[in-house]
């Protein structure tokens, strides 16, 4: 029982990342009709927002190390600590939560710039060309990050307070010991929060209602005198923000390097297809389901029966779903069903 619960939890936080990326992919596909292969790169950019903020906050100067008195020793001391003392140290410690403040405006800007600068020229082009141009864009972003931050993974840690593990077993009143890292729980909670936010935006606000109307029938909405294109641009920015937040908050779990975008992209495309192209709920559901499935597949008991299953389970599920139910779990009939 405990083991099962632990695997479910393990799957949920990974699934949270899949769900967030897949949600953004579905949003761009549903609104703009563009298959965006650069979406993984946006996830990676989000992660590097956090890394960049860390680099800025820890800008250091060489100062004399006062704790060593018998010879002249020097150490690197961040400016923030020099100027603000303990407050500065606390700010540096809280870099990942703080990076959210940087990520949101930056990713919105990047998303809108992409849409205006490149993607809007590809609405009328075939899907193959959309895939190709965004694939090229993904390579460019990835290589720029590699040029800027180097090829090695850059470690970044959660705030001190969230570094330990939570004793879930005790909380839920289970008999066994079941501990789980705090940060992963926080990640799960915040991904649920973001997903809820996106759904609330689309379903409860007038703006979101118009966007949904535009997704359903673009021409009619335009005939009503609404500039739907501008709203879709905003939605693209929103999708970029969602992917960016998913990336920035994921950094303490998975050390960011320049190719995590590509790694997650392939998986999240699979998630979108399993959930149903164009279905927001399907993307979220499939994200969590596949995350849980993957974590069960990496159990040693399962691996001893089916060696290697943990490596391919997601792709296997995708193949089965595409062949048996081409429109995905929650996909509407007739949407990209060919």
């Amino acid at each position: 029982m405990d083991a099962i619960l632990l695997q479910v939890l393990n799957g949920l936080d990974k699934g949270g990342a899949y769900a967030l990326i897949a949600l953004g992919l579905t949003l761009t596909f549903g609104t703009l009709g563009v298959v965006n292969f650069a979406h993984g790169a946006l996830f990676m950019l989000g992660a590097f927002c956090a890394v960049g903020l860390q680099e800025v906050l820890t800008l250091s100067v060489r100062v004399r190390d006062e704790s060593i008195t018998f010879f002249e020793a020097y150490k690197e001391e961040p400016y923030l600590v020099l100027w603000f003392g303990d407050t500065g140290a606390a700010i540096i410690d809280w870099v990942v939560p703080l990076s959210v403040l940087v990520t949101i405006p930056l990713m919105l800007l990047i998303g809108v710039a992409f849409e205006r600068g490149l993607i809007r020229f590809f609405y009328k082009r075939p899907h193959a060309e959309q895939i190709l141009v965004t694939f090229g864009l993904a390579i460019v972003i990835q290589e720029l990050i590699k040029a800027g931050f180097g090829a090695n993974p850059i470690p970044i840690s959660a705030p001190e307070i969230a570094r330990g593990s939570a004793d879930i077993g005790a909380m839920l009143g289970l008999s066994g010991v079941l501990t789980y890292p705090w940060w992963r729980l926080i990640y799960l909670a915040s991904s649920l929060f973001i997903i809820g936010g996106v759904f609330a935006f689309l379903n409860l606000t007038t703006y979101g209602m118009v966007v949904r109307a535009g997704m359903a029938d673009r021409e009619t909405v335009q005939l009503l005198g609404i500039n739907i294109q501008r709203r879709f641009t905003v939605v693209f920015g929103l999708a970029a923000v969602v992917a960016g937040l998913a990336g920035a908050l994921y950094t303490p779990i998975l050390t960011p390097n320049y190719h995590i975008g590509m790694d997650f992209l392939v998986l999240s495309f699979v998630v979108v297809v399993v959930g149903g192209m164009g279905s927001l709920g399907g993307a979220v559901l499939a994200g969590f389901l596949l995350g849980i499935l993957q974590s069960f597949a990496s159990l040693n008991e399962v691996k001893s029966i089916l060696p290697g299953i943990d490596q391919i389970i997601i792709y296997l599920v995708a193949v089965v779903v595409l062949l048996a139910r081409p429109r995905g779990l929650l996909g509407r009939r007739g949407v990209m069903e060919a």
Binding site: I131, G308, Q311, L322, P326, A338
Partner: peptide, 29 residues
């Protein structure tokens, strides 16, 4: 298997199969 679908689904299916081959080559095989 892949040709039972077309368009973007075909691209994703072939990608999924290639990734399976790649992952298996690194792990079980």
């Amino acid at each position: 298997v892949s040709l039972r679908r077309s368009g973007i689904y075909f691209s994703i299916l072939t990608l999924a199969f290639a990734q399976m081959c790649y992952n298996l080559a690194y792990s079980v095989l």
